[in-house]
Nucleic acid binder design. Structure first.
Lengths: 242, 242
DNA sequence: GGGGAGAGATGCCGC
DNA sequence: GCGGCATTTCTCCCC
C-alpha cells in the first residue's frame, strides 16, 4: 500500500491518533538499547507524543516512546518513522519495508477510569470494619504519607499495643514482609517503642513470606479486597429475581 | 461508519489482528472492577486472545484482556464487543456507540527483541570486570537462582570476606536495600558466617536508601549498566570521522 | 522534579 | 502451576 507522507506527517502534527500496520525493523536507544528484526507490527502514535510498537502477539508493546515527536521520512527509497524525545535522550527509529494499512482520526475522550478493588479500597474497608482484623482492634489513622512512613492502617489492639497493618490486594510476598519490617523498625525508633505488632492483610500469602513473618513474630490476617461494583451487580440481580 | 459484523467476527476467529476506532463505554470485572464512560478509543484484538483498549492519550491501555475470546454482537440496536477469559474469570464488555473505522489483517512476526542494558547485563559486566567493584574483588559465581537466594554476584574481597552485590540498572531505592539485607541475613544463617559485606551497584541511589545502607554498614558502588549497541554506534561514528 | 509505593501490574525464568 | 524478581516498568501521590 502506498502512503501519503505529507498527510501522514500532518496527522502526526495535528493531534490525530495514527495507526499504522507495516513490516519493519525497530531500533531503540535511550535508557537501554534494543533492536528488533523484520516483522509485521502495529504502530500507534498518539497526540500526546506516545508511540507504541506492538507485535501480533503479547499484551505489552515491544517498543515504545513517551513525550516524543514523530516524523515519517523517505530518503533513498527508505521509509523511516523516527521518534525523538530530546528531553529524555531517547531515540526510536522504525525502518518500514511494507505498509499494510494506516489510518488516523481526531479522537476525543474526557473520561477517566473508575476502578474498585485496589489496596486503597482494602485499607478503607479495614478502617471502616476493624473487626476484619480482630474484635478489639481500634484503627487510629490512615496517614499514608506521613513522617512515619506510608503505612496503610495503624491502630491499637486490646492491650494498647501499636499495630501496623500492611495490605496487599493479592498474594503477599517476601517484599511485603520486607516493607512491614522496615516500617516497624522506623516506628519503634521514632516513637521509642519496644513492642509493635505487624500484620499483613491479604487474601493469600506465599509460603516463604509466611515463614519469614512467623520467624519475626509478625502476623497474617486473611482479608480480601472489596469489589463494590460486583456487589452492586449481584444486588441488582437479586432484585430482579423477585 | 457501518461495520460488517460477520466479517469482523470471522477476523477475530481467524488469527487476524483487528484494529477498531470507536466511541464506547467499557466495563471490566475480574481481579478488580472498573467502568469507563463514553469516549473515543482505539481497540486492538490480537490472535493470541490479547485485547487492548487505548485512550487517545497515555502509554498504557486503560483496559485489557489476556487469553480471552472476543465476539462482536448486535442486540436491540446495541453494538457490543465482549471479551471473555473463563479460565481467569475475567469479563470485559465494550458498548460501542459509533464506529470511526476498523481494519484487520494477517500479521506475521517471528522476531524477538534484542535488548542490552538490563540488570543481567550489568552483573555479567561486573563478573567479567571485577575491578569495577574493587581492585581485589574476586567474583565467585553468578548463581541467580540457588537455595541461597537470587543473588546477582557474589565473591570475596582481599580479606576473604564474602561479598554480596545487588545490581540496579537505575536508581537504587529502599526496596533494593531491603533485598540486600534479606540476602545477607539468609547467607549468614545458611553459611554460619558472622561477617558478610553487602554492596549495591547502581548508577544512582536515593538519599534515604543511601542513609539506610550506611546505617547498616553496607556499601554503594557507582556502576552503570553497559550499552553495547551505543558503543558500537559511537565506534562507527568515530570510524566515519577519519 | 524526586522519592516512595501500588499495579487488574507484565514477563521471565526456575523449580 | 507457583515463587521470586526485573521492568526502557508505568502511574499516582506527596513533598
Amino acid at each position: 500500500m502506498k502512503i501519503d507522507i505529507a498527510s501522514f506527517n500532518e496527522a502526526l502534527n495535528n493531534s490525530k491518533t495514527v495507526i499504522l500496520a507495516c513490516s519493519c525493523t525497530v531500533r531503540y536507544s535511550g535508557r537501554a538499547e534494543s533492536f528488533l528484526d523484520e516483522g509485521d507490527r502495529i504502530i500507534i502514535a498518539k497526540s500526546d507524543g506516545t508511540l507504541l510498537v506492538h507485535q501480533p502477539t503479547g499484551s505489552t508493546p515491544v517498543n515504545y516512546m513517551k513525550n516524543a515527536s514523530h516524523q515519517l521520512t523517505l530518503q533513498d527509497g527508505k521509509l523511516t518513522l523516527s521518534s525523538r524525545s530530546l528531553a529524555d535522550k531517547e531515540y526510536l527509529d522504525i525502518a518500514i519495508s511494507k505498509v499494510h494499512y494506516y489510518n488516523f482520526s481526531e479522537l476525543a475522550d474526557s473520561q477517566s477510569i473508575q476502578l474498585v478493588g485496589s489496596e486503597r479500597d482494602m485499607s478503607d474497608m479495614i478502617y471502616s470494619n476493624p473487626s476484619l482484623i480482630a474484635p478489639d482492634f481500634r484503627p487510629l489513622s490512615r496517614e499514608e504519607h506521613t513522617k512515619y512512613g506510608f503505612i496503610d492502617v495503624f491502630g491499637y489492639d486490646k492491650n494498647n499495643t501499636l499495630v501496623i497493618i500492611e495490605c496487599k490486594r493479592y498474594v503477599a510476598d517476601l517484599k511485603a514482609v520486607d516493607q512491614l519490617m522496615r516500617y516497624i523498625k522506623k516506628i519503634k525508633q521514632l516513637k521509642g517503642l519496644k513492642q509493635v505488632r505487624g500484620i499483613i492483610a491479604s487474601p493469600k500469602i506465599s509460603p516463604n513470606a509466611l515463614q519469614m513473618l512467623l520467624d519475626h513474630k509478625l502476623e497474617w490476617k486473611k482479608v480480601s479486597p472489596p469489589k463494590y461494583m460486583e456487589r452492586y451487580d449481584n444486588d441488582q440481580k437479586k432484585l430482579g429475581e423477585y
